[in-house]
Amino acid sequence: MRAFEYVVADSPAAARALARESGDARFYAGGTTLVDLMKSDVERPGRVIDISRLPLTAIELRGDVLRIGALARNSDVAYDPAVARRFPAVSEALLSGASGQIRNAATIGGNLLQRTRCTYFRETRWRCNKREPGSGCDALDGFNRGHAILGTSDSCIATYPGDLAVALCALSANVIVEGDAGERTVALDELYVLPGDRPERENTLAAGELITGIELRAEPLYEHSHYLKIRDRASYEFALASVACAIELEGGRIARARLALGGVATVPWRAREAEDLLAGSPPGDAAYRRAADAALAGARTRAHNGYKVELAKRAIVRALRTACGGAA
């Protein structure tokens, strides 16, 4: 690890000011991604701004709107009764991520910005357009079993690794961001940016902006939301494919559906065409499979990740069936 300056912020405004004056600063909250990457020399901040003591930990349901502070711990959110009842997919997604120890340290805001697990990104010996813009991508023809099949480009096929954001994406969450011009709200799936030819840019946050919380609007639909994760072992493992979904039935037909994918795309992947196909259909495997085919229609595979197409489709069918069982 390289030497860096460590400072503690006592307010969000102070944290942003400290970031602005540095130029190469990183906010530090749970540290579960940042510190790992600093140890492996991937992240080289000149200044680390500790925001972990800012008063942004509340989890509050006001009317139909749930607001979660950016510094709420993953485990606290997962076990919050309002979250578990009104947004079960969020709770399930959080509990399927990492380990108990890491969930106790990780924060919601930091989790949204979790960096990819691509080996070629995480070790500096390799060429990586995300880490060193323009250097090339060793993952394209390397060992890419875990890599993305949706939202990829010729510059980058790194998978977005998180679980929480996939559930939030399906449930149309908003992210609250504080910047120089005050607070702004951005839809979660507009927070992330496809790699295109600039994979180093992962989100739409401006320099010095700080995520202060997320907002979820409770809808009856979400009470039957579900998160399904398929992985190489039963716990403590990133998704090979994951699905967040919600379904509402009306008169024996699907009235509305929400669907997002994880583990297969470069960003949390909202599958809107699949949602549109589901709306109005009678529930059942035929409709689910049609939706799954639509969700994966744009998949582009590499040498080792072709299996993800079929695996993701099956996960979608299973997740919808499970959610529908709950909604029936």
């Binding site: 697990r117 080996t119 010996r125 390397g142 060992f143 072992r233 039963a234 403590y236 990133f238």
Partner: peptide, 20 residues
């Protein structure tokens, strides 16, 4: 496959069973 370097050289990529 080209360089011969181990790309699963950590406990996130080299999977051993966990308690679960």
């Amino acid at each position: 496959p080209r360089a011969g370097a181990v790309v699963t050289n950590n406990f996130a990529d080299y999977h051993v069973p966990v308690n679960a």
